[in-house]
Simulated scan of single mutants.
Amino acid sequence: MLAAATDCEPREIAGLDVFRVEADLPAELTEAAHAAVLAALATADRYGHTLTRTSEYVWAEISREANVTPTESPDTAYRALLGHTTTCTACRTGVNCPDATRLVRAWRDTRR
């Protein structure tokens, strides 16, 4: 979701208890891209924004301690969400998409 919102490949950092994604922000962010970044960050357990003299990026962390429901794995639910957001015109332009909202809820439910 961050890749689609920022048009750059995010960095992925795997820790023992958390999976972290960092995405550089472009110098100018359209209103639609800004909304898409915020929507992506909202799916994380923890998120933030870092601004230094040389860079600006957002980060999102997802805990590995989430419980999995027996009906669907978090990986399967996340792949469904990712597949939708990368092909949905509304998601790629930052418009509120009810399908993405439903898929985010389903993914979060599998992580509980």
Rank of each mutant, 00 (worst) to 15 (best):
1 M>I: 10
1 M>E: 13
2 L>K: 14
2 L>R: 11
2 L>A: 15
4 A>W: 08
5 A>E: 08
5 A>Q: 09
6 T>E: 09
6 T>R: 03
7 D>M: 03
8 C>N: 12
8 C>F: 09
8 C>S: 13
10 P>D: 11
11 R>N: 07
11 R>S: 09
11 R>D: 13
12 E>P: 08
12 E>G: 13
13 I>F: 09
15 G>S: 04
17 D>L: 01
17 D>P: 00
18 V>C: 02
19 F>D: 08
22 E>A: 03
22 E>W: 00
23 A>P: 13
23 A>R: 10
24 D>V: 12
24 D>N: 12
25 L>H: 01
25 L>Y: 00
26 P>Q: 05
26 P>T: 04
27 A>Y: 08
27 A>W: 07
27 A>V: 13
27 A>I: 08
27 A>C: 12
28 E>V: 14
28 E>P: 06
29 L>Q: 11
30 T>M: 12
30 T>P: 10
30 T>W: 13
31 E>G: 13
32 A>M: 05
33 A>I: 06
33 A>Q: 15
33 A>V: 06
35 A>M: 01
35 A>T: 04
36 A>D: 05
36 A>C: 08
36 A>F: 07
36 A>N: 06
36 A>L: 08
37 V>A: 05
37 V>E: 09
37 V>R: 02
38 L>M: 15
40 A>V: 12
41 L>V: 14
41 L>G: 05
42 A>H: 03
43 T>D: 04
45 D>W: 02
46 R>Q: 15
48 G>R: 09
48 G>N: 10
49 H>D: 10
49 H>K: 04
50 T>S: 08
50 T>V: 15
53 R>H: 04
55 S>I: 05
55 S>R: 05
56 E>S: 12
56 E>N: 03
57 Y>F: 15
60 A>G: 15
61 E>L: 09
61 E>C: 11
62 I>F: 13
62 I>T: 14
62 I>H: 06
64 R>C: 01
64 R>H: 10
64 R>Y: 04
67 N>I: 09
68 V>Y: 02
69 T>D: 02
70 P>T: 01
72 E>M: 11
72 E>A: 07
72 E>R: 05
73 S>N: 00
74 P>Y: 05
74 P>F: 02
75 D>S: 07
78 Y>N: 00
79 R>N: 08
79 R>P: 01
80 A>Y: 02
80 A>M: 07
80 A>R: 13
81 L>D: 00
81 L>E: 02
82 L>C: 05
82 L>P: 00
83 G>W: 10
84 H>P: 11
84 H>F: 06
85 T>Q: 04
86 T>Y: 06
87 T>P: 05
87 T>V: 13
88 C>T: 11
88 C>V: 11
89 T>S: 14
90 A>L: 08
90 A>K: 10
90 A>H: 08
91 C>E: 06
92 R>W: 11
92 R>K: 05
92 R>V: 01
92 R>N: 06
94 G>I: 01
95 V>C: 03
97 C>H: 10
98 P>T: 10
99 D>E: 15
99 D>R: 14
100 A>Y: 01
100 A>N: 04
102 R>K: 13
102 R>W: 10
102 R>M: 12
103 L>R: 07
104 V>W: 00
105 R>Y: 11
106 A>Q: 10
106 A>D: 09
107 W>H: 02
108 R>H: 05
109 D>T: 05
109 D>E: 08
109 D>Q: 08
110 T>E: 05
110 T>M: 06
112 R>T: 14
112 R>N: 13
112 R>S: 13
112 R>D: 12
